Simulated assay, not measured.
Amino acid sequence: MKKTFYFIPILLISNFTFGQVGIGKQSVNGNSTILDFEDSSSNTNGIILPSVNNTTNALASTPSNNNGTFLFDKSDSKVKFYENSVWKDLSNAGSSTQITANVSSESSNSQGVIIGSSTSNAKGALVLESTNKAVILPKVSNPHTNVKNPYPGMMCYDTNSKSLAVYDGSAWSYWK
């Protein structure tokens, strides 16, 4: 009986920590997906990226662990991507006037939520840690016309143009 008692909690923790997550759906698409979103053809929701005052202090002390970080930089109102020690612009300068300040009392050393591992050296609000799984972004057809009130830093996959779409607070940018 003791073996069963200890085995079940370990199995549940393992599945939760290293499992796949579906948002707005019962299951994820495929075995190589770590995070997946609703597939509805009428979806107009995307991911809202974290916004920072500037990119200088946005990463942990070992920035190489943060390749693949996306954020909205309020200092120049651009959506950015971090790769090989360089922030790359994914949008033109937009507007950060819609962004509301975070007034919660989070700890400055808070790790955030990690999916795919029990720990991570990367710093972020949501860290997806996997060597063999990927994210399936929320799918939106023509976000520039169908998302009525986009928020600065919104990101989705445009099913019409078959590209990554990011909103900078003023306009959408598309990446194939």
Rank of each mutant, 00 (worst) to 15 (best):
residue 67 N to H: 04
residue 38 E to C: 13
residue 71 L to A: 10
residue 132 N to I: 14
residue 151 Y to N: 13
residue 66 N to W: 05
residue 138 P to K: 01
residue 44 T to Y: 02
residue 95 S to Q: 01
residue 148 K to W: 12
residue 25 K to H: 01
residue 150 P to E: 09
residue 104 S to R: 13
residue 121 N to M: 01
residue 84 N to I: 11
residue 115 I to S: 03
residue 144 H to N: 13
residue 105 S to E: 11
residue 140 V to H: 00
residue 87 W to C: 14
residue 101 A to E: 14
residue 45 N to F: 15
residue 65 N to I: 11
residue 122 A to Q: 06
residue 67 N to A: 11
residue 95 S to W: 01
residue 91 S to R: 02
residue 95 S to R: 03
residue 145 T to P: 00
residue 150 P to A: 06
residue 94 G to T: 10
residue 115 I to N: 05
residue 137 L to Y: 05
residue 45 N to A: 06
residue 145 T to N: 06
residue 66 N to F: 11
residue 123 K to V: 13
residue 149 N to R: 03
residue 129 E to R: 00
residue 89 D to I: 04
residue 111 Q to S: 08
residue 46 G to Q: 04
residue 93 A to F: 05
residue 121 N to S: 11
residue 27 S to W: 07
residue 86 V to H: 05
residue 46 G to M: 08
residue 66 N to A: 10
residue 30 G to Y: 03
residue 24 G to L: 06
residue 28 V to T: 13
residue 31 N to L: 06
residue 143 P to L: 08
residue 121 N to H: 02
residue 57 N to E: 15
residue 81 F to M: 12
residue 88 K to A: 13
residue 144 H to T: 15
residue 42 S to N: 14
residue 109 N to E: 15
residue 99 I to T: 14
residue 139 K to Q: 15
residue 115 I to H: 04
residue 124 G to A: 07
residue 152 P to N: 05
residue 41 S to V: 10
residue 111 Q to W: 01
residue 25 K to W: 07
residue 62 T to G: 10
residue 148 K to M: 13
residue 89 D to G: 11
residue 77 S to N: 14
residue 47 I to W: 00
residue 30 G to Q: 04
residue 28 V to C: 09
residue 56 T to N: 09
residue 28 V to S: 09
residue 62 T to C: 09
residue 66 N to L: 06
residue 80 K to P: 03
residue 117 S to F: 05
residue 99 I to S: 02
residue 45 N to Y: 07
residue 128 L to D: 14
residue 88 K to R: 14
residue 46 G to F: 00
residue 109 N to A: 09
residue 141 S to Q: 08
residue 34 I to F: 07
residue 101 A to S: 15
residue 101 A to N: 11
residue 123 K to C: 08
residue 29 N to G: 08
residue 96 S to A: 12
residue 39 D to C: 10
residue 75 S to N: 05
residue 24 G to W: 01
residue 124 G to C: 03
residue 82 Y to N: 06
residue 61 S to A: 14
